[in-house]
Amino acid sequence: MSKYEYRPLPEGSIRLLRIEPNTDQGAPIECKVLVCPVLNSGRTSLYEALSYVWGSQEKRRSIRIGGHEFPVGENLFSALLALRDPHLDRIVWIDAICINQEDNTEKGYQVQTMARVYAQARGVVVWLGAGTLNASKAI
């Protein structure tokens, strides 16, 4: 399977990730990238932003974006599994995927828009990691 290749973003745009549904938790995570303008209206949009700990990038897992392979860290992989709905698409903004981390120019611009991206999201999902036996005691 070929590796996912980023396309340049039009000025004033962001990428969003559509996580495709699957009733089988063991099925590969299939996604599509959507390109959308960053809105200046101050209204919320129909996507969620994910805030999470990147964690170690040593153990990589693979998801599929538009039929192409895309490596992600273990913590992001477990977040995507938890976010995937069995029946409905879910649209999210995730910095590690929606920003081309290998393009410093794009990264610089996109980091400047992050406050707007979070502010315009329908909600922000915070992922601290997969639960443990004692996690409920912390909450």
Rank of each mutant, 00 (worst) to 15 (best):
R116Y: 13
D89M: 10
P71N: 13
G66D: 15
F70M: 13
M114S: 07
C98V: 05
R84T: 10
E102S: 15
V92F: 14
F77Q: 03
W54C: 06
Y52A: 00
T113K: 10
V117D: 03
D95S: 02
K59T: 06
A79L: 05
R84N: 08
I99D: 01
D103C: 09
I65M: 05
W93N: 05
V92D: 04
I65R: 02
K59Y: 01
E74A: 06
G67M: 08
I99K: 00
L81D: 03
G55Q: 04
R90E: 02
V117W: 12
D89R: 14
R90V: 07
I91L: 11
R116K: 15
R84I: 08
A82C: 11
Q120L: 11
I63S: 01
D103E: 12
Y52N: 02
G55Y: 00
R60Y: 07
A115N: 09
L83M: 08
K59F: 00
I94G: 00
I99T: 02
I91V: 15
I94W: 00
F70I: 06
I63P: 00
G73D: 05
Y52V: 00
F77V: 01
H87G: 08
D103A: 08
R61T: 05
R84L: 06
I65N: 02
N75G: 05
N104C: 11
S78P: 03
G55W: 00
V111L: 15
V53T: 13
R60G: 07
E106M: 14
K59P: 01
A115P: 04
Y52H: 02
F70R: 12
E74M: 02
S56W: 03
V111P: 04
N75V: 02
E69F: 03
Q110M: 05
S56A: 09
Y118V: 06
N104T: 10
Q112E: 13
L81R: 15
I94Q: 01
A82V: 04
D103R: 13
L81M: 09
A119Y: 12
G66V: 09
D95P: 00
E106S: 08
Y52S: 01
S62V: 13
R90S: 01
Q101T: 13
T105E: 15
N100T: 10
W54L: 04
L81S: 07
E74T: 08
C98S: 08
T113D: 07
R60H: 12
L80M: 03
L76Y: 01
